[in-house]
Amino acid sequence: MTHEEAAGLLGAWALDACEDAEAASVERHLASCADCRVEAASLTRAAAGLGELAAGA
């Protein structure tokens, strides 16, 4: 998976909205790309924020 492909999938990945094989490819890319790791961490925090919304219900 190229950097562009992986970066394009980061939002879906953070939302658990990729197919398993794609998620695995994204994670392989993350292991070697610091920029994507930073974005992935930030998007993961945002997704976890959506979980707070569920808890606030």
């Binding site: 394009g8 939002g11 879906a12 953070a14 998007l43 925090r45 945002a46 997704a47 959506l50």
Partner: peptide, 20 residues
């Protein structure tokens, strides 16, 4: 599908930015 991917990414980015 590409549009869906980018909406998810952009939407989450905005949420992240708001929280930050």
């Amino acid at each position: 599908e590409g549009t869906a991917k980018s909406r998810l990414r952009l939407g989450l980015r905005r949420i992240a930015r708001c929280l930050e």
